[in-house]
Computed example of a mutant assay.
Amino acid sequence: MIKDELFSTYIQEKNQTFSGWDFSYLSETGRVQNGILSWSYGSIVLPLIKEAQAMLDMGTGGGEFLSMLTPYPPTICATESYPPNVPIAKKRLEPLGVKIVQIDDDNELPFEDNSFDLIINRHESYSPIELKRILTNQGIFLTQQVGGTDCSQINEQLGAPLNEEFNHWNLRYAVNELEDHGFKIIDHREEFPMQRFYDIGALIYYLKAIPWQVPDFTIEKYQDRLYQIHKIIQSKGYFDVQQSRFIIKAVLE
């Protein structure tokens, strides 16, 4: 048992509740800060929505982002695969006219062929085959993705392996895959901004919110390594990791 009062205080973050896809508990208190990208996903999305007749938001989380993009096209749907998020999204978005659809498989989306002329996707998986099926001709697909090596320094410091299933996932792979399925790439960018944690409790909360970073994460298993990161933060004032982000705007030809 580590006898450090400050460390013991911070690890109580394991008891904090996380819901939807809302990191304001960390961001609004300044306990975590993200580096700046050269693009704004929201700024790119807004004019596309104004031109669309039918749109789909893939992986809407609790609907936090989509709820701020009104007014919507005449037809608008959103998918979510994480069951606890579905009622949150419904409560937030259905009064605004959004149809929420819970899904289990990216390869079998419950929509008719040629249903949407705009599909947006922020940090959600997708199947190019299904995108091609449900998009109209000249329909637009916009996605911002998290690369497979995202925040790998967390895993290194904890002595936890990266998920090899996603090591290949980067801009080049995603562009090639979309082009192979009949998409024309209109714009694409990839960057690696820093993410800074100012206390170990913020990192613990973050790892609870995104369990795929370290799938077997528990305080008990990683306590010694967490304490080493805590000492880094106490010495430097922060713990930095490198994010991986890329964005693609494509049109179906």
Rank of each mutant, 00 (worst) to 15 (best):
Y126A: 04
L66V: 08
Y72G: 06
R133G: 01
C77S: 11
V101K: 12
S81V: 10
V86Q: 13
Y126E: 05
I76K: 05
S127E: 13
E51H: 14
Y41D: 08
H123A: 05
P74D: 01
P83D: 06
E94Q: 15
T60M: 08
R92P: 00
L66P: 14
K99Q: 15
G42S: 10
R133F: 00
K132F: 01
V98T: 07
N85D: 05
M55Q: 11
Y72C: 05
D106W: 00
E124L: 08
I49T: 08
Y126V: 01
K132W: 00
Y126S: 09
P83W: 01
L66M: 09
N121A: 04
R92F: 02
E124C: 13
I103W: 04
I36S: 14
V86C: 08
G35R: 03
A78P: 14
Y41M: 07
D113S: 14
E94R: 12
D104C: 08
G97L: 00
L93T: 09
S43K: 14
K90M: 13
E112I: 02
P47Q: 08
C77E: 04
P71L: 06
E64Q: 15
M55C: 13
I44K: 09
D117C: 09
V101H: 10
K90R: 15
G61S: 09
I100D: 07
V45K: 03
V98P: 15
P128Y: 01
L69A: 15
S115C: 05
H123M: 08
V86A: 10
N34A: 14
T79V: 03
I119P: 08
Q102E: 15
E64P: 01
L48G: 01
L118H: 11
L118I: 04
L46N: 10
I103K: 09
Q53E: 02
L48R: 02
G42C: 02
V98F: 02
N34I: 14
I103L: 13
N107H: 07
V32P: 02
T75V: 10
K99I: 04
S38T: 14
R92L: 10
E80Y: 01
I88Y: 11
P73W: 08
L109Y: 09
L48W: 03
G61T: 06
T79E: 14
H123T: 03
Y41K: 05
Q33W: 00
G63F: 11
P110F: 05
P83E: 06
M68D: 07
G97S: 02
P110Q: 13
P95I: 00
I36G: 01
I119K: 06
S43M: 04
L96S: 04
S125W: 01
S38A: 03
P84D: 05
L96H: 04
P83K: 12
Y82I: 12
M68A: 15
G59L: 11
D106I: 03
S43R: 14
P47N: 07
N34D: 08
L93N: 12
L93V: 09
